[in-house]
C-alpha cells in the first residue's frame, strides 16, 4: 500500500468519523457518573510524515558491531547496536545483528527473543528467514 493511498483513505475515514459524531465521546468506566464537561480542544501542529530510511546513518555502526563481536567484545557490540536501533527502531536488519551478537556471546535466550521481536519488522522472505533461524 502506498503512502498516499494510506493517507487519503485515512483522511476520508476521519472525516466520516467526525461526521458521525466524534465529539460525543465519553468514558464508559465504572462507578458513579462524574460531571462531564464540554471538552475544549487546542489546535496543535500535526506530526511529521514517516521517516525515510536511516540505513546510511546506522550501517557503519553495524559494521563496527560486527568487528566488536568478532573480537569477542560483546558489550561494545551491543552498545553500538543499541545506538543503531535508536536511530532506526524498525530495522529488522539491526535486530538480526543483535540476535547474532547475543548468540556469539552465548546468550541464546536473548538471541531468540531479539530475533522473535525482529520478525515483527522483517520485509521479504530472505530477511524473515534469516531471523527465523535464530528463533529456533
Amino acid at each position: 500500500m502506498t503512502l498516499s493511498h494510506f493517507v487519503s483513505r485515512g483522511t476520508v475515514l476521519c472525516l466520516l468519523l467526525f461526521g458521525a459524531g466524534c465529539s460525543t465521546f465519553s468514558g464508559s468506566d465504572g462507578g458513579s457518573v462524574p460531571v462531564e464537561k464540554e471538552p475544549e480542544y487546542t489546535t496543535v501542529t500535526p506530526p511529521t510524515a514517516p521517516q525515510p530510511s536511516a540505513r546510511t546513518a546506522y550501517q557503519p555502526l553495524l559494521d563496527k558491531a560486527a568487528q566488536a563481536t568478532a573480537r569477542g567484545d560483546y558489550g561494545q557490540a551491543m552498545a553500538l547496536l543499541e545506538r543503531a536501533q535508536r536511530i532506526d527502531p524498525d530495522s529488522a536488519e539491526i535486530y538480526l545483528s543483535m540476535a547474532k551478537a547475543h548468540q556469539a556471546s552465548g546468550d541464546m535466550a536473548q538471541s531468540r527473543a531479539t530475533a522473535e521481536r525482529g520478525l515483527l519488522y522483517c520485509n521479504g522472505s530472505d530477511q524473515c528467514a534469516a531471523l527465523r533461524v535464530y528463533t529456533r
Binding site: 485515512g10 483522511t11 466524534c22 465521546f25 468506566d29 471538552p39 500535526p46
Partner: peptide, 16 residues
C-alpha cells in the same frame, strides 16, 4: 477509533 478514546483525534490527524 470508535470507543472511549475517540477524543485523541481532536488533536491528532486522522491518518495517524
Amino acid at each position: 477509533r470508535e470507543g472511549t478514546g475517540r477524543g485523541v483525534y481532536r488533536y491528532l490527524p486522522g491518518n495517524f
